[in-house]
Design a protein around this nucleic acid. Structure first.
Lengths: 232, 232
DNA sequence: ATCATATGTTAACGATAGGTTAAATTAATT
DNA sequence: AATTAATTTAACCTATCGTTAACATATGAT
């Protein structure tokens, strides 16, 4: 029914809070405004939110503390911190808690909108990655990442190994876009060093061999950055 | 939201400071004027500013020192220095601290306005680029700085190296305006000496070669100052 | 005009990342 | 325990990248 994304906004400055709330509402978000950490936490428990925007500096309960409590209930809600000071320790602290992004006050309202959109998009990706959605079509291939089956047109399917499978899936989640090296290494190999990196290159070669039947599908390297699977 | 951008102006000459403040106010900026470094820092801590304009030569606390303190609190506030002498060491020192631009006294007030606008626009762009799409259009080119792809009309894209990529991006953030040599050197090469400077010239030549297909796009040198990419 | 300095340009080199195959190792099955 | 599958490591090769050298030209100061 209501496909608007729901935002929890916690901001202690009432003027700024209301202005920001109205601005977000104008842009088709459903916004619940809380004016301190306590109230923010209560409202978070009552509703489901797609994203939380928290001011860092608030009396009684600061944004970091609130974020910690929120993450205890739901690890996956993306959080954007609003911060006047952008001290390095603060940024680090925020990322440890699980911040998805930072915005230094004063910020441009368009930038906030962009960041919200980017985060929601990103989150959709990782939701797919964690749950199912294991059927992919690309070029003339059909790929089932649950069964680890890769099929070209009417050929019989080929069975992929677990690592081949995860890597292909990761590439497809970033289809036509950069899949950063470091992402695959931390997510699939759970370590980022010279050897895991070379291992990954070996798997890229294996996948390329599987995909070479289809001239419209390519895995391109972006030197120093990662790989990119291109297909129509 | 609140449309007016807020400027912190720190200038020890009271006459000039007031004139400049009123001029900026007439141009729809909210200006807070401080008459020395100490006062400037206090006011910076109290309010959120979109941009700081600092006189370099002030008694007790000079503009550089103040800039350093400001950057410790908020690394991302753009800073414009006003300077009578424009010694090379001073310019370098400023860029290392994180200056966004320089203005030699006496200066044309319209130039200052133009620079303020350019900086705000640039800052907004790069904030967006941190998360979202990295797409630029100029002349008949399309440039994707995330994939490091440069495309001319319907041609196949050309791959850019990391340094080519960063340099082109920096030129585009200053499109039709001066991109100071020292800025690219401190930000991209992270060092400013004879060799890095020559290296940069080599990369300018490489970019020129890539861009020569389009007669409407040029990278011009401004002797002793830097480069300017002109288009449209 | 002269000179020092800044810039334009090309080529070559060394360093590092990536492509690929095969052998070695480890894990999974039987 | 034996066999097979999966993954890692090694080895060798190619591509890419950035720096530096070398030489040419342009610019601005004197």
């Amino acid at each position: 029914m209501d496909d608007n994304k729901r935002i929890l906004l916690v901001e202690d400055d009432p003027n700024f809070g209301i202005i920001l709330r109205d601005f977000l509402k104008m842009n088709d978000y459903d916004v619940v405004l809380a004016k301190n950490g306590m109230e923010g936490f209560e409202k978070f428990k009552k509703h489901d939110f797609h994203i939380c925007i928290l001011d860092v500096m608030m009396p009684y309960k600061d944004g970091f503390t609130l974020a910690g409590e929120i993450k205890e209930i739901n690890q996956d809600v993306p959080i954007i911190f609003l911060t006047a000071k952008s001290l390095k320790e603060d940024v680090l602290k925020g990322y440890k808690i699980g911040a998805d992004d930072y915005l230094k006050k004063p910020f441009d309202s368009d930038v906030l909108l962009y960041k919200i959109k980017a985060i929601l998009k990103r989150n959709k990706l990782s939701a797919i990655l964690d749950t199912d959605e294991h059927e992919f079509k690309f070029g003339s291939f059909e790929f089932n990442s649950k069964l680890r089956h890769l099929k070209f047109k009417d050929n019989k399917y080929v069975k992929l190994s677990p690592k081949e499978n995860m890597l292909l899936k990761m590439l497809l989640l970033h289809k036509n876009d950069l899949m950063p090296r470091e992402l695959a290494l931390t997510r699939i190999w759970r370590d980022d060093n010279y050897f895991t990196s070379r291992s990954m290159d070996v798997y890229i070669a294996k996948l390329r061999k599987q995909l070479e039947i289809d001239p419209n599908v390519k895995i391109n390297n972006i030197h120093g950055e990662g790989f990119r699977l291109v297909s129509d």
